[in-house]
Every structure is written in structure tokens, then in C-alpha cells.
Simulated scan of single mutants.
Amino acid sequence: MSSENAYYVPHDAKWPIIGSIGLMLFFGGFAAELNNAPSASIIMTVGFLVLVYMMFGWFGEVINESESGAYKSNEDASFRGGMVWFIFSEVMFFAAFFGALYYIRTFSVPWIGGEGSGASTNEYIWDGFEAMWPTNGPANVGGEYEKMGPWGLPAINTLILLTSGVTVTWAHWGLIANKRKQLIIGLALTVILGFVFVALQALEYSHGYNDLNLTMASGVYGSTFYMLTGFHGFHVSMGAIILAVILFRSMKGHFTPENHFAFEAAAWYWHFVDVVWLGLFVFVYWL
């Protein structure tokens, strides 16, 4: 048990080495799978299961330490700082992809089409290429395709994510007011909306591949489309899982109006995911 001015130092843990073994098996198996090695999928599966075991065990210990009162103001400040830096790294992660999209649309495509100072460049690189967006590049890479429009499933998913931002905020208000029922209902609605978003995105991908011939091979438009929306979908999946864990903890009576940073961290992450999606909806689907 730590005092208010001391910093809690955890005991020796087996989890880092277990996690390292799991990562080694998982990525080693993945590399072997890429090279068609025998038993590669089994090694990768074992590595994944080891990682899941590590997460349950390590996170469980941290939860028990938190609920026992081991963490005070110093640890809370450390956790908040760590979460701020983590979200900042995620901002930079998506900024790189948005930057790539901006560079391609604003500079690369017009340049190859002969615009700007390199007016004759297209004669040497690809004569006759017309600079327009969306494009699958010179030579019609991947064949004919259709652009994924903003209305329909993308608009519905935008409404779903914006609504989930409201429900998680409503749940936070319930926690601050010590209204456990409001907290649980708000979290449950947020988790459901998150997984509905992922399911609709999977349906959208099926429509793109089967009906629009929009694939990863559809030139630069197809690759940037799936790169940006795919990574975002992965983040939504992780955020929904994190919020589901927070929901189960709330149902067990965890968190108080004064001590609930785990909830706040999950809510911060979820709002970040919402903001990124608004950028995607405007710059990937709409413009």
C-alpha cells in the first residue's frame, strides 16, 4: 500500500517475459506463414493464445492493485501522462496517412498529369495520363471500379459513431453523479454501437469488392481507401473491446466518482476515434 507522496513500485512480474514469448511466437509464425512454412499457422495461433493469457493475467493484476488502493495521486498523474502520449502517437499515426493522401491528391497526381512546373513530365513518365481524383493510376491498374460514395453506409456509420460519443459522455456523467444504472446503460449502448459500426464497415467492404470492383489493387485510390478506413476500423474494434471491459468492471461495482481513470482513458480513446472518422468521412468519402 502506497502513501500519498510515495510512488507504488510493483512486485516482480512474470508477465513481461510471457508477453515477449507470445510476441516472438506470433510474429515468427506470421513470417513463416508468409513463406509457406509447415506448422506456421499453429505457431502463430499458440503465440496469439499466449498473448491473450498475458493480457488477462497482467491486466487483472493491475485492476486488483487499483481496486485495493495501491494507486494514489502520483500514479494517477503518471497514467494520465502516459495516455496523453499514447493518443498523441495515434494522432501522428493517422496524420502520416492523411498526409500521404493529401500529397498524392494535391501534388503527385497533378504532377504526373503535367500540371505545375513539371508541365512536360507526363510525356516522359506516362504520356496521356489525365490528372483526376479518384484515380487508379496510369494503365488503369486493377481495372474499372466505382468510387465509394459518402451516403448510405458511410453516412449511417458517421451517425452511429457520433451517437456513441454522446452515449459514452452520458455514461461518464452517470459515473460522476454516482448513478450506476446510467453508467452501465450508457456503456452498453456505446459498446453495441461500436460493434454495429464494425459490422456495417465489413458490409461496406463486401459491397466495394463484389459490386464496385474497388479492391486493394485498384491503384492508389483503392490502397489509400482501405489503408485509412481499415486502420480506423481496427481502432474502433479495439476501442469497443476496451469499453466492453470497462462495462464488465462497472457491472462488478468498480469505479467511483473520485477514482475512475480507466473509464476516462477509454472515453478519451473513443472520442479520438470519433474525430478521426469525421476526417475520413470528409476527405476520403466526400471530397
Rank of each mutant, 00 (worst) to 15 (best):
R80M: 06
G22C: 11
F195N: 06
T169I: 13
A95L: 14
M148K: 07
A37P: 04
G222L: 02
L101C: 07
M1Y: 09
G142P: 05
S66H: 04
N140Q: 08
P16C: 09
V245T: 09
S68Y: 04
F272T: 10
N122P: 09
Y71M: 10
V273F: 03
G19R: 07
Y71K: 10
S250W: 01
G142V: 04
T229P: 01
V276F: 05
M54K: 00
I87G: 00
L175V: 01
A240C: 15
E144S: 15
S237N: 11
A70C: 08
Y221H: 06
V196H: 02
L23Y: 05
A155W: 00
E204H: 00
V52P: 09
S73V: 15
P10Q: 11
A100S: 10
M148S: 11
K14E: 06
G116V: 14
F26H: 10
P10I: 11
F231C: 13
Y8V: 03
P138F: 04
N5W: 04
S73N: 14
A262T: 09
L175G: 02
F48A: 13
A266H: 05
A265F: 04
Y209P: 00
D76C: 08
P110H: 10
H11C: 11
A188R: 09
I21G: 08
Y145Q: 07
S2N: 14
M1H: 13
L23T: 11
N259M: 05
G152H: 13
F48T: 10
S237Q: 11
E4H: 12
K252A: 14
G99V: 10
V282C: 09
V236L: 12
F48Q: 07
V166K: 06
N213F: 07
F88Y: 07
L189Q: 12
I42D: 08
F231H: 15
Y103W: 14
F79V: 06
S78E: 14
M251N: 07
L162S: 12
A202D: 01
E115K: 14
G174C: 07
L159Y: 08
A262I: 02
T215D: 07
I242T: 05
H11F: 11
I104S: 02
Y7F: 13
E123Y: 11
S41K: 15
E90N: 08
Y221I: 04
G81M: 00
A262S: 12
Y209M: 10
T229W: 03
F88Q: 06
L25F: 15
N259F: 07
F30P: 02
P134N: 09
P150F: 03
H260I: 03
F129H: 00
K72P: 06
A100K: 00
E33C: 01
I18T: 09
I246R: 03
T224S: 06
G233E: 01
V84G: 05
I125C: 03
